[in-house]
Design a protein around this nucleic acid. Structure first.
Length: 465
RNA sequence: GGCGACGUACCCAAGUGGUUAAGGGGGAGGUCUGCAAAACCUCUAUUCGGCGGUUCGAUCCCGCCCGUCGCCUCCA
């Protein structure tokens, strides 16, 4: 079975065939670190994470690059307002980004290049465009991409290049240019703005050029997959394609993948709408990181995803259900023979799981396959048809699927000495049929975040939250 | 206006031209249990925004209408 991915350029799902067999090169548009990223941004990064995790699960070698934009108008403005440097401001927010990514269990990209550390690569690219007649310099030292030199401009967004001329946004840009549709590759120096001395003159990079330069640096002039939010289709990715392909003469990207927005009620979550929440806000409200991850992952990436208290509570409950199964499997003891039909059950679950994700990363049926399995395993635990070894096999199996999902409980499930003593004391109290003491200890443990449950295999515990 | 999507139960959300319309959450009842929790069982959409059309048959294809959202050089 092959992996199908919906390519925005084709407007349809296409079979993934890596340029280099067995190796997939992925570039994800990362954030501009002018402030803390909000969870809408993280939906995007989580989508990149799902893609990369699944490709790796399927046995591909993956090289994943996510850029960090650390120079732009908002960063400059922010640094000025705080009387600090763009370097300090952006590094502070980059660290928060990495921290939040770790909280959400997002795999660290192989490379997270900063724009300001790739200026020479951008300059080289811009020089090529100047040499090829695709770019021109204006009086203030800015350099623009000449859209008229690139007939295929706008294909990704299905734009009519002629129709764009009526766009009445001439005033939107402070820089003079030949054609309103032309976009900045390089912005000429201005007082009070950071500027780099380069062979194409002083100034700073435009927004789009960094992604072309950095993706090519780490992945080559032509690579497999480029991801980002739907809002980036135009102009960002449209411009990236034009400048990259005009410079190299090669197809830039083989598959363009775009995720839909996170919805807060009827609208997208966005800073300009003021309806944002941050990872820290949600965690501080007592929602576990895994529940947040599940809530942000539970719909297909190209479908708008509703976010709110209901979805967080639903995800928390689903995580609890998963945790309860792990706890039950860990405590389960039965000396009987192995369940002869368990291998078929697990094979069926895996087949359903993979079939769903093969189809353009359709995570909903994949989660359904997991939770179908959860129910069936609980049934078999109740019926005691599993052997002790079967319980271990089932645990290992779910952990294997979880390489893709990232929602299973942590592996390290040991308690500190004090809590372990309380757990042991309660087991002793129960053995002595001292219900008052055992109930009291159960309450004490619950207040410490440890949920104790009694089963015919004895007492078991799991972490709440 | 141009372009791109969407409307499935109380909420979230898959899906298929035709046997029972996934899964999660919530709710009701039940089993088990010292109690509790967890788990399991049963029930919770004769129906897929509305109206037409194509078809032996449509939620799924086509048209129109209603409603919602996104992008059109700030934007994951």
């Amino acid at each position: 079975m092959t992996i199908q991915l919906h390519d925005t350029m084709a407007g349809a799902a296409r079979e993934l065939v890596p340029l280099e067999p067995g190796h997939v090169r992925v570039y994800s548009c990362g954030p501009t670190v002018y402030g803390p990223a909000h969870i809408g941004n993280f939906r995007s990064f989580l989508f990149g994470d799902l893609l990369v995790r699944y490709l790796r699960y399927r046995g591909f070698r993956v090289t994943w690059v996510m850029n960090v934009t650390d120079v732009d108008d908002r960063i400059i403005k922010g640094a000025r307002a705080e009387a600090t440097t763009i370097g300090e401001l952006s590094e502070r927010h980059r660290k928060m980004l990495v921290s939040d990514m770790q909280t959400l269990g997002i795999a660290m990209p192989d490379f997270m290049p900063k724009a300001t550390e790739n200026i020479p690569q951008m300059v080289e690219l811009i020089q090529k465009l100047l040499d090829g007649g695709h770019a021109y310099k204006t009086d203030d030292g800015s350099i623009f991409f000449r859209i008229a030199s690139w007939p295929e401009y706008g294909r990704l967004a299905r734009l009519d290049p002629e129709g764009m001329k009526v766009g009445e946004r001439v005033e939107a840009d402070d820089y003079a240019k030949d054609d309103v549709r032309d976009f900045a590759l390089w912005k000429g120096p201005k007082p009070d703005e950071p500027s780099w001395e380069t062979s194409i003159g002083p100034g700073r990079p435009g927004w789009h050029i960094e992604c072309s330069a950095m993706s090519m640096r780490y992945l080559g002039p032509s690579f497999d997959i480029h991801t980002g939010g739907v809002d980036l289709v135009f102009p960002h990715h449209t411009d990236e394609i034009a400048q990259s392909e005009a410079a190299t003469g090669q197809r830039f990207v083989a598959y363009w993948l775009h995720n839909a927005f996170l919805q807060m009620g009827a609208q997208k979550m966005s800073k300009s709408l003021g309806n944002i929440e941050r990872v820290g806000d949600v965690i501080d409200r007592g929602i576990s990181p895994r529940a947040l991850r599940l809530a942000l992952s539970s719909a297909h990436y190209r479908a708008p995803l509703s976010f709110g208290e209901d979805s967080l509570q639903a995800a928390s409950s689903a995580i609890d259900r998963l945790d309860a199964l792990f706890a039950a499997l860990a405590t389960y003891r039965c000396d009987g023979p192995d369940d002869a039909t368990l291998p078929d059950l697990l094979d069926g679950a895996r087949a359903a799981f993979e079939a769903a994700l093969d189809a353009d990363l359709n995570i909903s049926p994949a989660l359904a396959a997991l939770f179908d399995l959860v129910r069936e395993l609980n049934r078999r635990i109740d019926a005691r048809v599993l052997s002790t070894a079967d319980a271990s096999r089932a645990t290992a199996f779910i952990r294997d699927l979880d390489r893709v999902l990232g929602i299973a409980p942590a592996l390290d499930e040991s308690l500190d000495l004090e809590l372990q003593k309380l757990v042991d004391d309660r087991a002793a109290a129960r053995a002595a049929r001292d219900w008052a003491a055992s109930d009291r200890l159960r309450t004490v443990l619950a207040e410490r975040g440890i949920l104790v449950e009694d089963t015919r295999d004895g007492q078991r515990w799991r972490r709440g939250e």
